[in-house]
Computed example of a mutant assay.
Amino acid sequence: MKRMSLFEFEDFRWFPGGLRECLTLYIAAMHRVLGTERILAPLLARALEAAATDRVVDLCSGGGGPLLQTTARLEADHGLRPDVTLTDLYPNTDAAARINAAGDAARVRYLQNSVDAGQVPDTLQGVRTMVCSFHHMPPPVARRILQDAFEKRQALCVLEISDNSQPRWLWWTAIPAGVLMVLLLTPLIRPLRLRQVLLTYALPVLPLLIAWDGAVSNARTYTEEDLRELLAGLEAPDYQWEISHPRAPGAPATMLTLVGLPLRTQASRPEPGVRQEA
């Protein structure tokens, strides 16, 4: 596999919760700037239709990521208002309180108990989404996530903002660019707290942490070839995998998506396997 097994600070259980929250809020702001919801919404609309469900279970949600913007675009562009459940191995308690306080009007709730993406409880049914989080999973866990969705015929949408197609050495040049991005994007973070500002500009801990995690996440992203290796043997006439490399309007590079879809009718069943989309 081209994917490299490296560490990101936010993966560690000991990583301070305050810093973890700052990182996840920054990531949410970055998704808004990149327009990730413009890529995710049509994928999710297809998956909801294929699975004949109105429920979404987001795994590794962090601070909420782009799911709130995605639900708004789903309603505006596709007329869909699914019930969305956000989950995380280390739930962001502040984000959970803020999102849950919005009430049923948003149709989004954040579970405050820990949920392991590799062992999704059977009580959580619906289209599973993983946005910029699949690369955190080592190959055995990543395989288990794919296999569980396949065996239970649950739709799955994986989106990574990097496709890891560049030479390995090039990713490390992203560290200085990452530091600059943090300095520029921090004023766009909502809610923007004093801690985030101080740890960005007065004591620049966050720019270094985020730049490292960003460069490493690029190197840890599964390539299309890696995904095909993970999907070996997960084939059936009533389930289809699709891999694509979309680009959001104005985004600097292509993204990588993997979608698993249950097929309900004989007429809609293509040859089993992995489908390539442009």
Rank of each mutant, 00 (worst) to 15 (best):
F150E: 10
S165W: 00
V131M: 06
D122I: 03
H245E: 09
M130T: 03
A102E: 14
P42M: 13
P66N: 08
P270Q: 06
D88I: 08
P270C: 07
L185W: 13
L43G: 01
L185F: 09
A174F: 07
N164C: 04
P191I: 10
A248V: 01
G18R: 11
S217V: 02
I189E: 04
L208N: 06
L230D: 02
L194I: 06
G64H: 01
A253G: 11
D94M: 07
D213E: 15
L263D: 06
M1C: 08
P66D: 07
R81Q: 15
R275N: 14
P246E: 00
P252T: 10
E277M: 03
C60Y: 00
G18A: 14
V197E: 05
I189W: 01
P140T: 10
L198T: 12
L159N: 06
G64N: 09
L156W: 04
T200F: 03
R38Q: 05
L209Y: 05
R32P: 00
S133N: 04
F15W: 12
T221L: 02
D58S: 09
P167C: 09
K2M: 12
T257H: 02
Y222C: 05
T85I: 11
L263Y: 05
Q166H: 05
R109T: 13
V127G: 06
V205W: 11
R168H: 14
D104G: 06
E151R: 15
D104A: 12
G17N: 13
P42Q: 14
R143G: 09
R73T: 09
P272G: 11
M4K: 14
Y26F: 11
L198G: 08
P82E: 11
L156G: 02
V205A: 10
R20H: 12
S162T: 07
R107T: 06
T24C: 04
F9C: 11
L192Q: 12
P139S: 09
L227Q: 02
L183C: 13
L48H: 01
A101F: 02
Q69D: 15
L156M: 12
G126F: 01
D77K: 03
T93C: 05
L86V: 05
L198W: 12
S5M: 13
T123P: 01
D94K: 12
V141H: 09
G62N: 11
F7R: 09
S114Q: 09
A28K: 01
G63F: 02
S244E: 02
L67A: 10
A41E: 13
D88S: 04
P187L: 11
P167T: 15
M137C: 14
V108F: 05
L111W: 08
R228F: 02
A50E: 15
M130Q: 01
P272Q: 10
P246W: 00
A251Q: 00
L146K: 01
A117F: 03
L263E: 03
L146T: 05
D54S: 12
V274K: 04
S244D: 15
T70F: 10
V127R: 02
E10G: 04
Y110R: 01
G250D: 15
L6K: 11
G18H: 03
V57M: 06
L23A: 08
T71D: 06
G233N: 15
A149I: 08
Y110H: 10
S244V: 00
P140H: 14
L89T: 06
W172G: 13
D213H: 10
L227K: 03
L209F: 06
P82V: 11
C22D: 15
P207Y: 10
C157V: 05
Y110Q: 06
P187C: 12
L89A: 13
L25Q: 10
L6P: 07
E21H: 14
D58W: 02
H78D: 15
